[in-house]
Design a protein around this nucleic acid. Structure first.
Lengths: 91, 91
DNA sequence: GGCTTATATGAACAAAGATTTATATGAATA
DNA sequence: TATTCATATAAATCTTTGTTCATATAAGCC
C-alpha cells in the first residue's frame, strides 16, 4: 500500500467527496449544479473538487463562464460500484 | 452510502490500521507481535485495534496473559485484496 | 472599461483523528 | 499475595482535515 494509494482511499472515504462523485456519475456538471445538488457552500465544493482532482479522480474544462467537471475516466464508475459493494458486504 | 459504510472505509484508509490488517492476514497475532512487526508503540496499536474491532473487522480472544487478534471473517481477505486492486488501478 | 456571474484560493477557525504519556486492569507466577 | 507481564484506557497533546469567510481571478455582458 503506497502513499498515493492511501491518499486515494482517504479521498473517497469522505461523505461530501463521495457525493460529488455520485453526482458526476450522472454526467458532466458545473460547480453551481453540484452545489445545488448537495446543498453546500460554493467554496466548500470548490475545495473538495480540488482534492478529487489532485488524486486524479476528476477532470475539468472551461465552458464560457462555467467550469465543467467530469469523472476522469469511465473506470471510476467501477471504483464507486466496488467501494459500495464492499461497504455493503460488511455493513 | 450510509454512515456505517463510511466509517468502515475511513477505518481501512489509515496506514497503521491497514498494516495491522495485513499482519492479521497472515494469521492470529497477539498485541506484542503486532507492535513488533509494525515497530509502533503498544498503546497506539491498542487504540487502533479497538477501532478495527469497533467496525467489526477483527475479533479477539484471551489466551493466558496474551490477547490474540484475528480477522473477523475470511471474507475480509477479499476486502483487503479488493481495496488494493482498486488502489492499484488508479495509482 | 466597469459590472456581473462563476469559480478558485488563502487564511482563520473548528472538528476529528492520531499519537504519546501516564496509569489501570487482569492473568500468571514466584 | 506481591510482582511481573501483556494489554487497555483516559487524558493531554499534536496533526490533519474539513469548513467558513473574505478576497481574487477570469470570462462575458452592458
Amino acid at each position: 500500500m503506497t502513499d498515493k494509494q492511501l491518499r486515494l482511499l482517504k479521498c473517497v472515504a469522505d461523505e461530501t467527496r463521495f457525493q460529488i462523485l455520485l453526482t458526476l456519475k450522472k454526467g458532466e456538471r458545473c460547480v453551481c449544479e453540484i452545489m445545488e445538488e448537495l446543498g453546500r457552500e460554493q467554496s466548500l465544493i470548490s475545495h473538495h473538487l480540488r482534492a478529487l482532482r489532485k488524486c486524479g479522480l476528476i477532470r475539468r474544462r472551461r465552458e464560457g463562464k462555467k467550469i465543467m467537471y467530469r469523472l476522469a475516466d469511465p473506470s471510476i464508475l467501477g471504483l464507486l460500484a466496488d467501494v459500495e459493494k464492499l461497504a455493503n458486504k460488511f455493513c
